[in-house]
Simulated scan of single mutants.
Amino acid sequence: MSAGTVTVSSSRQSSHRVAALARAEGILLWRNRLALLNAVILPAALVGSLKSFGGLGASGAHDFGAMLLTGLTAFALLIAVYYNLVTAMVARREELVLKRLRTGEATDGEILAGTAAPAIAIAWAQIAVAAVAAVAVLGLNPPANAALVPVALILGTAVFVLLAAVTAAVTRTVQLAQVTTMPALWLPLVFSGLLFPLAMLPEPLRWVAEALPLTPVMELMRLALTGTTAAGGHHLGLAASFGAAAAPVLVLAAWTIAGAWAARRWFRWEPRR
C-alpha cells in the first residue's frame, strides 16, 4: 500500500469519526430545547431589537439588507457558536463524555471538531437564510467582493470556536457559563462597529476596538457586501477591497493562532474538582 493511499484512508477515517461525533452532538443539542432555542431564535431576535432601536443604522451603510446580514453574522458567531459551545464543552466535560472519548481512536482535534460541528452548522444556516431573505425581501445588492464572505465566516468561526474552548477551561459548571462568557460576548459586540461608528472613538481606543475578535469579521463582511470601510465609509473597487481586507485578516489570523495555543495549553478534559 502506497503512502498516498494510507494518507487518503486515514483522512477518510478521520472524517467519519468527526461526522459520527457531530451526529451524536446534534442529537444532544436537539434534545436540549433551551440550547436549541438560544442557538436558533436568539440571534434573530437580537438583530430585530437592534433594528427597533436603530442600532444597525449606526454604521452609516446605505444598504439595510447588508447591515441586517452583517448583524446576524455577529450574533450567530457570538450566540450559536461561542456561547452554545462553551455550555456544550463544559457539560460534556463534567459528564465525563470528553474523558471517555479520549480513550477511543478519535484525536483531541477530532473530538473538538465533532462537538463544534452542529453549532457551526446552525450558525452558517442562519446566515445563509438571512442572505436569501435579504436578497428576496430587502433587495440586497450583489456583493462588492463575494470572495471575502467565506474568509470572514471561516476565520470568524475558527476564532470563536477556539475562544469557546479557552472559556470552557475556566468555567466550572454550565450555570457559571453565563458569567464567564460575558466579557467575550459583550465587549467585542459593543466595539464591533455595529452599535456606533468606530470613528467616534478616540484613536487609542479605536485601535483596541479594531483588535477585538468580532470587529475584523464585521469589517470583512462590510467590505464584501457593500465595498465600504468602517473608517469614513469610503467605497472601494474590487482590487482596493482586497487591500483593505489585509488588516482584518491578519487580526483574525493572530486570534486563531493565539486561541489554538491557549486551547491546547489550558483546555481541560476532566471535571474541575
Rank of each mutant, 00 (worst) to 15 (best):
P43V: 04
A74T: 03
A74C: 04
A128E: 08
L50T: 07
G57Y: 08
F64M: 09
R33S: 11
D108I: 00
L36D: 00
P43Y: 03
N32L: 12
R102D: 00
T103E: 08
L101W: 08
V47H: 04
A58M: 12
A113K: 02
T87I: 14
Q126R: 07
A76K: 10
S52Q: 13
A113F: 09
A66K: 12
T115W: 03
H62M: 11
V135Y: 10
L37A: 14
L78K: 03
S59F: 01
A121M: 10
I111R: 04
A134I: 14
K99H: 15
R31C: 07
L68W: 13
P43G: 00
N84K: 01
A125V: 10
F64Y: 05
F75R: 05
F53W: 12
Q126Y: 00
L98A: 06
L46K: 06
T70H: 08
H62P: 13
K99G: 06
L68N: 14
E110Y: 13
A136P: 15
L50G: 09
T70W: 14
T87S: 15
T107K: 05
A133K: 12
A117F: 05
A130D: 12
T107W: 10
W124P: 02
A106E: 00
A113S: 06
G114A: 02
T103K: 03
L36W: 05
A123F: 00
G65W: 02
R92K: 09
P118W: 04
I120T: 03
G48T: 14
L46M: 14
A35K: 08
I41Y: 06
G57N: 07
K99I: 12
A44K: 02
L101N: 04
D108E: 15
V81D: 06
D108A: 14
G55P: 09
M67G: 15
N38R: 15
A91C: 05
A106H: 04
A123C: 02
G104T: 10
A106T: 01
L69W: 07
F75K: 02
L37T: 11
L50S: 14
L68P: 09
A80D: 00
T87G: 06
F75P: 00
L68R: 15
A123M: 06
G48E: 13
A45L: 08
R100Y: 01
T73M: 05
L112T: 03
A58V: 06
K51H: 11
E95F: 03
V132P: 07
Q126M: 11
Y83E: 10
D108Y: 06
M89H: 10
L72C: 10
A58C: 07
V135I: 11
W30S: 13
A58Y: 05
L37Y: 13
R92L: 03
